[in-house]
């Protein structure tokens, strides 16, 4: 299985006044295609920073971030934007829908940025996806007319509409109640299974983590455990394993 994301010795520091705050320290990591990976850890452990680096919206202070075989440090801002558009999908904690656009238009938006497809093709793709996320009756609702769970499903549809290699989700369920959150993770998981899209999401919710193939644990900017790479297709069989806290006892077993 090829790795879609490789991080080697990645450090990230943020200036805070006269101090320099390290957010990530010498992190190395690789994620294979089709993985459903959770990044776990307490607040301030560097989860979001890690996702931002993988999502090409931030650059590392040192080390290399390789996304789909491309070294992001060597790409221009323009190319990075292009990379995000073509290869990545984003799901945000606060949904981040464009307020003035309705459901359909929000999902269609990345396709319009790409500008590759005809109106008809776009219509088909978007409708299909909205049906898939269960919003086929909400095409013309504006974000403020939707519930939190519905909004996040629009966001998922938007993230998937370009058929990205990797979908990044930063705390996708944090603003949702438990039931809705579970449903969202189920939806992500089923897409992961049927389409083979790589999902990388951060969370500190144990119930969410248990759906992941692998849990990467961060503490103080370091990986304390990088979890397990699931044997092909068997992800569904071991979710309960990845729920385990601390260094996984199964590491040796695999």
């Amino acid at each position: 299985m090829s790795d879609v994301v490789v991080l080697s010795n990645v450090s990230k520091e943020y200036p805070l006044g006269k101090l320099v705050v390290p957010a990530l320290k010498e992190v190395s990591l690789s994620i294979g295609a089709g993985e459903f990976v959770s990044i776990a850890g307490p607040s301030g452990s560097g989860k979001t920073t890690l996702l931002n680096l993988v999502g090409c919206v931030d650059t590392p202070t040192s080390g290399a971030v390789i996304v789909d075989g491309l070294d992001t440090a060597r790409l221009s801002e323009r190319d990075l934007t292009r990379l995000r558009l073509e290869k990545l999908g984003f799901i945000f904690q606060s949904f981040n829908l464009i307020a003035v656009l309705d459901t359909f238009q929000n999902v269609e938006f990345p396709l319009l940025l790409q500008g590759k497809q005809s109106r008809k093709e776009r219509r088909e793709v978007v409708s299909e996806l909205l049906e898939r996320v269960g919003l086929d009756k909400h095409h013309h609702h504006r974000p403020n007319e939707l519930s939190g769970g519905q909004r996040q499903r629009v966001a998922i549809a938007r993230a998937l509409v370009t058929r990205p290699r990797i979908v990044l989700a930063d705390e996708p369920t944090a603003n949702l109640d438990t039931g809705t959150g579970g449903a969202i993770i189920d939806l992500m998981k089923s897409i992961n299974e049927t389409q083979g899209t790589t999902f990388i999401f951060s969370t500190h919710d144990a119930r969410v983590m248990k759906h992941a193939d692998r849990v990467i644990r961060l503490e103080d900017g370091r990986i304390v455990s990088s979890g397990d790479i699931a044997p092909n297709g068997a992800a569904g069989s071991r979710p309960e394993l990845s729920v385990q806290e601390g260094p996984a006892p199964y590491l040796a077993g695999e």
Binding site: V57, E77, T81, R82, L85, R158
Partner: peptide
Amino acid sequence: TREIGTMRAIGAQRSY
């Protein structure tokens, strides 16, 4: 700001 950041994250260029 957030909306524009989102657009940029999703893949909108500056010129857009």
